[in-house]
Simulated assay, not measured.
Amino acid sequence: MPGAKAGSSRALTEKSGFTCAVETVASALQYDVTDTDSLVSLHNRLHGNVIELAPIRVAKNIPEFKLYAPNLADYDAKLNEAGEQNADQ
């Protein structure tokens, strides 16, 4: 796999066997991930002792929040303005 270190597939094979390592690499290719951290994380998720938790149900008395979408252009302008003021001092 391009981007993955050569030892990562060997480490996965030693950890859980060749078949599990091949399953991990096949799944990684479906997700288009090739870095070592993603391979190890995916391998642990597929072949580790991961506890599947049921979805959390939110109580009906909790209000729903409005989506907040910040105006990053305004934020950047204020930061630039503050930077210019500090540069003058």
Rank of each mutant, 00 (worst) to 15 (best):
R45L: 09
G17S: 01
K60T: 13
E81V: 04
V22M: 09
Y31I: 00
K15H: 09
Q85G: 07
L53E: 09
A87H: 02
I56Q: 13
L29R: 11
G83V: 03
R57Y: 13
A6C: 00
H47N: 11
N61H: 15
E14Y: 01
P55E: 04
G48R: 01
S27H: 11
N86Q: 14
S27T: 08
A4Q: 01
A21D: 06
A77D: 12
S27W: 01
I62Q: 12
V50F: 10
V40C: 07
P2I: 09
N86I: 12
I56F: 10
L12E: 02
T24K: 09
L79F: 05
R57E: 09
K78Y: 06
H47Y: 06
S16K: 08
R45P: 00
E64P: 06
G7E: 07
P55H: 04
I56H: 11
T36K: 03
L39G: 06
A69P: 00
N49L: 13
F18I: 05
Y31A: 09
A69T: 08
V40S: 08
L72S: 06
A21P: 13
K60I: 06
P2D: 03
D37T: 14
V50T: 09
F18N: 13
E14I: 00
D74R: 10
F65G: 06
D35A: 02
S8L: 05
S9N: 00
K78E: 15
L67F: 10
K5W: 06
T24C: 08
I56K: 11
E52Q: 14
K78I: 03
T19S: 15
V22P: 05
L12C: 01
V25C: 01
A73M: 02
L46I: 11
L39I: 02
A28R: 02
L53K: 10
E14A: 06
D88R: 15
D76H: 10
E14Q: 12
N61M: 08
E23A: 09
E64N: 08
V50A: 13
L42T: 03
E84L: 15
K15E: 03
N86T: 03
S8Q: 05
Q85R: 15
T19I: 07
N44Q: 14
